[in-house]
Computed example of a mutant assay.
Amino acid sequence: MDATLQTFLGNKPSMETPKAEPQPAYTQEQQEKASEVVQEQSGETVQEQADETPHVNRRISGKQRRASLEEYKEEFLRVPSIEDRKPVFLSRSTRDALDRIVRMFGERRMSMSGLVENIARQHLATYGEDIEAWRKL
């Protein structure tokens, strides 16, 4: 910035040139993660094929999104029967995110506790056998 502009903005012009701070070098893994985030935000997914050339899948249609929403609702937003309740503690950000999902997509009697119950049941159904095998290691 030239001295006139700095004076106008209320900054005193300095005679020294600011030194650029050294930036950390990114590892290959960090660069890959960053590119995945950019691709996810653009709505496109890139799948690596065996020959290491990326293949771009196009966006999902509205009809497919509605079908996947219905699958999600069927799996996680059913009102469960919870007996012998116990408190579970969640961070504020997690609680707010789950509460938002329940308010947007849940039925009238659905609660955040019901969503957490359904998520835990699905997790146990998916990994129950593995957990038992790991326990015996």
Rank of each mutant, 00 (worst) to 15 (best):
I101T: 02
A97T: 11
Q28A: 15
R135Q: 05
S14A: 14
Q64H: 09
D51K: 01
L69R: 07
M112N: 15
K12D: 10
L9T: 08
I131H: 04
Q31M: 14
L98S: 05
G10H: 07
R100C: 09
V102S: 01
Q31A: 15
L9A: 11
E107Y: 07
T7H: 13
R135D: 03
E71P: 02
R121V: 00
A20T: 10
V38I: 14
A50F: 05
V38S: 14
S81H: 06
R103E: 07
V46E: 11
G43F: 00
R58P: 10
Y26I: 08
A67C: 10
A97Y: 14
N11W: 15
E21S: 04
R85Y: 11
E44I: 10
K63P: 00
P22N: 13
G10P: 06
Q122L: 05
S14P: 05
M104N: 10
D84L: 15
D96C: 01
Q122Y: 03
S68L: 07
E71C: 06
E29H: 15
E29N: 14
I131C: 02
A34I: 11
P54T: 00
R59A: 04
G43V: 02
Y72H: 03
R95F: 07
E107G: 12
L69G: 01
E70V: 09
R109D: 01
E107V: 06
E117N: 06
D51Q: 02
D99S: 11
R108N: 05
D130V: 02
M1P: 11
L90H: 01
G128R: 10
Q6L: 13
F8A: 04
F105Q: 03
V116F: 05
E74W: 06
D96P: 02
K19G: 04
I119E: 02
V38M: 13
I131V: 14
Q64Y: 08
W134C: 06
I82W: 06
Q28N: 12
E29V: 15
N57T: 09
M110E: 06
I119N: 01
E16A: 11
Q6I: 09
E44Q: 09
Y72I: 00
V38F: 11
T17F: 09
E132S: 01
I101M: 02
D84A: 08
V116P: 01
A97V: 07
N11G: 14
G128P: 13
L90F: 03
S93A: 03
A50V: 09
I101D: 00
K86L: 09
L115F: 01
K86T: 13
K12Y: 08
E83G: 14
V38E: 13
S61L: 04
E16L: 13
R78V: 10
K12P: 10
I119V: 08
T94D: 10
Q64L: 10
S93V: 04
L137Y: 13
T27Y: 08
T53A: 02
T4H: 07
A25Q: 15
I119R: 03
V116M: 07
M104V: 14
K12S: 11
S14V: 07
P24F: 08
L77P: 01
V38T: 13
M112E: 13
G114D: 00
E29I: 12
